[in-house]
Amino acid sequence: MNKHSTYSITAESLTKRFGDFTAVDNISFTVGKGEIFGFLGANGAGKTTAMRMLCGLSSPSSGKATVGGFDVYTQTEKIKQHIGYMSQKFSLYEDLTIKENMRFYGGIYGMSIPAIRSKTEEILKTLELVKEQDRLVRTLPLGWKQKLSFSVAMFHSPQIVFLDEPTGGVDPLTRREFWEMIYQAAYEGTTVFVTTHYMDEAEYCNRVSIMVDGRIAAMDTPASLKRSLHADNMEGVFLQLARDAKRAAD
């Protein structure tokens, strides 16, 4: 543990280059324990790349970062024990049932069989999926799939959970329920690092950072951002900052 021990995540001049292209350009920030930290930006602004570096899926080109007190260059496997990750692309096994997916992920995080069993029951109850537990994941509607993905990412009770556009393509009611689950996780002490481009969701975060062209253009609580940019809502904040973006959205 180092001087940042009160922080879950620290980043200092973190940079990722792919050839000539600088996807993430010198970003610095800290995320406190139990905080819900929103990572906003247009498509292609570098949010996913930044998140992948923090999760140990991608090596940074330069800069420093720690996650849960562990270094992203040398201690990625330690980091992985303490984080949960939900990628943009649905990535549970579609040809396994709900229960089998939970058992598998619980198992590879090294949980014991009784622990897996009780956790599975708990989640099935919370998601009201007890009757559906033997259904193949392929057959579930998208909203259920997303909530299930989140629950699986939280299955081994990680200190920090990374969510990459978790509510993409989901209806407003499910989005609301999804955010209730996020609040519950934060309430229980999990740090939540979430990317989104729904500006109403940004309002739910404790703090947000807005990325434009690989850089952090602004970072603060939603209330202070609105105040300093004289905007009525987060959408106004975002539009003002993103207007000068050079990078074409994909």
Binding site: C55, L57, F90, S91, L92, I108
Partner: peptide
């Protein structure tokens, strides 16, 4: 292709 390998790579396996 389906992205499950990334979900595996983010575990301490």
């Amino acid at each position: 292709e389906i992205g499950t390998i990334e979900q595996i790579n983010v575990t301490p396996i």
